[in-house]
Amino acid sequence: MGITILFKLLFVHILSDFVLQTDSICKGKKKEGAAKVGFQILHSLIHAVLAYLFVAQWDNWIIPVVIFVTHLMMDFIKSDYLKENMTTFIIDQAVHIAVIFLLWFSLYGYAEHWFEWFSYYLSNPRLWALITAYLLILKPTSIFLSLFIKRWTPEESASQSLPNAGKWIGYLERILILTFILAGKIEGVGFLLAAKSIFRFGELNKAKEIKITEYVLIGTFASFTIAILIGFITSQLL
């Protein structure tokens, strides 16, 4: 019963925040004066009413009240004090999800069982091996790769790239490679390499692009090699 309510509250949040929040509501929350407040109240009310209906505990008014108040407060802070960017989006969603978890835990959670569960996993070496592997393929590997391919970096490559795009492409591809290997789906690595080849290596036949293409090939294969090695080592440790 308790875990079902948690999933219902998460479902309601996604439904209200992304499906039922129309463009007119989004634009209305950015207006000035009473109109903005009205749209913020409407959006928060949708969250609260749906939470009340889906949980279906008609004598429990704590859930809709808390969700309404916290959502309205967060919308007010976001519209008046925060810029509209990725960081704000993550903060906004993290706050709403944290409220849902805290609300559910305080009303339906079984603290003793959850503490036992957390203590078990925190003392489990498999968890720490996974965390270490994912951390290792991010910043440490990125630094190593930048130093490794520095001698081959063409002067024109920096001006032709988006800022930090290569770094984030590397992060994402290594996360996918490690996940594929740990999930036992090694064929996914081949699909990823083929997909990247289509986008990055199409200029190989142009002589003026040979240096950049070779540079990208070295970086790609080095990144794939490190991620695959870490993946296989981690899978053996697990």
Rank of each mutant, 00 (worst) to 15 (best):
Thr225Arg: 02
Lys83Pro: 06
Ser223Ala: 13
Val189Thr: 02
Gly28Cys: 10
His71Ser: 03
Gly231Asn: 06
Ser123Met: 11
Ala183Val: 00
Ile181Asp: 07
Trp114Leu: 14
Lys8Gly: 01
Ala98Gly: 12
Tyr52Gly: 03
Thr220Leu: 11
Ala94Val: 14
Ala158Ser: 15
Ile218Gln: 08
Glu173Val: 02
Asp23Glu: 14
Tyr52Trp: 15
Leu53Trp: 13
Val66Thr: 12
Val99Ala: 04
Phe105Asp: 10
Lys8Leu: 10
Trp128Met: 07
Ser161Gln: 13
Ala194Glu: 05
Asn85Glu: 09
Ile62Cys: 10
Ile228Trp: 00
Leu122Pro: 03
Gln236Trp: 14
Gly166Glu: 06
Thr225Asp: 01
Phe201Asn: 02
Ser123Tyr: 11
Phe201Ile: 09
Leu204Ile: 15
Glu173His: 02
Ile100Met: 09
Met1Ser: 09
Thr234Tyr: 05
Arg174Ser: 10
Val49Gly: 02
Tyr134Met: 06
Asn164Phe: 15
Ala194His: 04
Ile131Arg: 06
Leu238Met: 12
Gln160Tyr: 02
Val69Ala: 12
Ile97Leu: 13
Met74Lys: 07
Gln160Ala: 12
Asp17Lys: 00
Gln40Thr: 00
Ser16Met: 07
Pro140His: 02
Tyr215Asn: 03
Thr225Ile: 15
Phe148Asp: 03
Lys83Cys: 09
Gly184His: 05
Lys206Met: 09
Ala183Asp: 01
Ile175Gln: 00
Phe199Tyr: 11
Lys206Gln: 13
Asp92Ser: 02
Ala195Val: 05
Leu130Gly: 06
